[in-house]
């Protein structure tokens, strides 16, 4: 067994049902600190549901999830502790439209970390710099393009200085010409050493930075491998079929 502190996320035989519908059917996965994992699979296979169980936006009904040594249960304190360790980026951005870009990014550090406004804003400006849009700080999300909004969303998640970043199809709602600007930010982030789980069908991104690709179907992990092996040597029929459809 590997060193426990090396493994930042441990999922053991996770099951979840929506009413009678069995969405996750025994998912087990261990992710090391600094690892970049790409999850792919057909629509409706439970990818979103799975990564949302990791920060408890969805609860699981069977199995264990341990994040950075904290087991996910219904204990509110555990949930709060884990959420402040994990940043999440959504397909639909989910920026707060009534707040400026800067306020979107400072919100959590001011209210959850209890930082002073000045400190929070300094941190926010550094992050907006990092994602390449410091000049948009005082605009509202509705005034930005999709690609800019998604980069704000990344900055917002990074503001809490999370150890783990979850991405749920971050480029699927973007026009083609904006995908690259978001992927560039994500590539830079992946190389910075943060732990990332990315649900995406951007196989170029996966090939470039992923340590591992996980293929999901009907709520199960069908196979997982390094990018090279995964693309050159898929083991399962379903993986081959999926790859033939998206490549």
């Amino acid at each position: 067994m590997s060193d426990a502190s090396e493994d930042i996320i441990i999922c053991r035989d996770v099951h979840k049902w929506f009413d009678d519908f069995h969405v996750l059917r025994g998912v087990s996965m261990t992710i090391k600190r600094g690892e970049v994992v790409v999850i792919c699979g057909p629509s409706g296979s439970g990818k979103s549901t799975f990564i949302r169980t990791i920060n408890r936006l969805e609860d699981h009904q069977q199995g264990d999830i341990i994040v950075d040594g904290i087991e996910l249960t219904n204990d509110i304190r555990n949930i709060a502790a884990i959420r402040s360790e994990i940043g999440m980026v959504f397909q639909q951005f989910n920026l707060f439209p009534h707040l400026t870009v800067l306020s979107n990014v400072t919100l959590a550090t001011i209210w959850v970390r209890k930082w002073s406004k000045a400190k929070a804003e300094e941190n926010a400006m550094q992050l907006l710099e990092r994602v390449g849009i410091p000049e948009q700080a005082h605009k509202y999300p509705g005034q930005l393009s999709g690609g800019q909004q998604q980069r704000v969303a990344i900055a917002r998640a990074l503001a809490m200085q999370p150890k783990i970043m979850l991405f749920d199809e971050p480029t699927s709602a973007l026009d083609p010409e904006m995908i690259k600007e978001v992927l560039d930010v994500m590539v830079e982030l992946a190389r910075s050493g943060i732990t990332m789980i990315v649900v995406t069908h951007e196989m170029g991104f996966a090939r470039e930075v992923a340590n591992r690709i996980v293929f999901f179907d009907v709520g199960q992990i069908i196979e997982q491998n390094t990018p090279d092996e995964f693309f050159l040597n898929p083991q399962h029929e379903r993986t081959k079929l999926f790859l033939s459809q998206i490549l």
């Binding site: 920060n55 709060a80 959420r83 994990i86 989910n94 707060f96 919100l107 959850v112 917002r156």
Partner: peptide, 27 residues
């Protein structure tokens, strides 16, 4: 108000009261 707003607030670590008072109710 779309559910994504509440989820984004929760994912940032805001508690239920903050989520309602700062994000959902104003909108």
């Amino acid at each position: 108000i779309p559910r994504g707003q509440e989820e984004a607030a929760k994912a940032l670590g805001l508690n239920g009261f903050q989520t309602m008072a700062l994000i959902v109710m104003p909108q």
